[in-house]
Amino acid sequence: MSDQPSILPLAIEGLSYEIGGCRLVGVDRALITKGRRTVVLGPNGAGKTLFLKLCHGLIAPSQGTVAFAGGIKPAARRQAMVLQRPVLLRRSVAGNLRHALAVAGFGYLERRRRTVRMLDQFGLADLSDRPARVLSGGEQQRLAIARAVSVEPELLFLDEPASGLDPSATRQIEEILLGLHADGLTWVMTTHDLAQARRLADDILFFHAGRLIEAAPADRFFAEPDTDAARAFLESRLFW
């Protein structure tokens, strides 16, 4: 991995995504920086999911560009995504990992080696032979992250990785994310949970009604937001 030139920073310019003439996402400029924990924040329906899919390349922008450093179009395995509702295959836990590694082009021995490592690292070793889809929500989410990380991407997108999980499973996921960051993975995650954003973010991209209206380091964003919409979002949280 390290011998390849980095795909970061990721630069987004003049981005717009429209369906039927209706503009769902608009981003004038944004930068995803290597080593920074970027949190895409905003209420439900703000356009966070669409923005992440545009960055990942699952959907194509109507206008504008999403450009990796040096103009590379990276192979799928260099930037992975954990979808808001990850689809686990109808296989065992280990089978899901092996499949992802096979798709990414790893050979048989390497697949086995990495599968074992991922199972250990994500606390899934005891579950390795279970059908993946009968796992609990927290376990499924851990597997989804393990699967995305198994191919050693440089950049990982996570769409609401802890939504719908109980507090302890949420904390587990957050610890995993912090650990991955410490190991050198750059990630971008979305959340509508203010407290979670405070716990995890270096940089905030704040979305409102489909537009990126604030991009700032987390401490500045939380201390003195520039926009009324962001202030309202921060305050409504305080009053509850």
Binding site: H56, L58, A75, A76, L83, V87, A100, V103
Partner: peptide, 18 residues
Amino acid sequence: YREQLTSMGAGRLRAIPT
């Protein structure tokens, strides 16, 4: 599976055995 497999880099042809 489409979105998930596409995200993992599996096109239609690679999706068939899966």
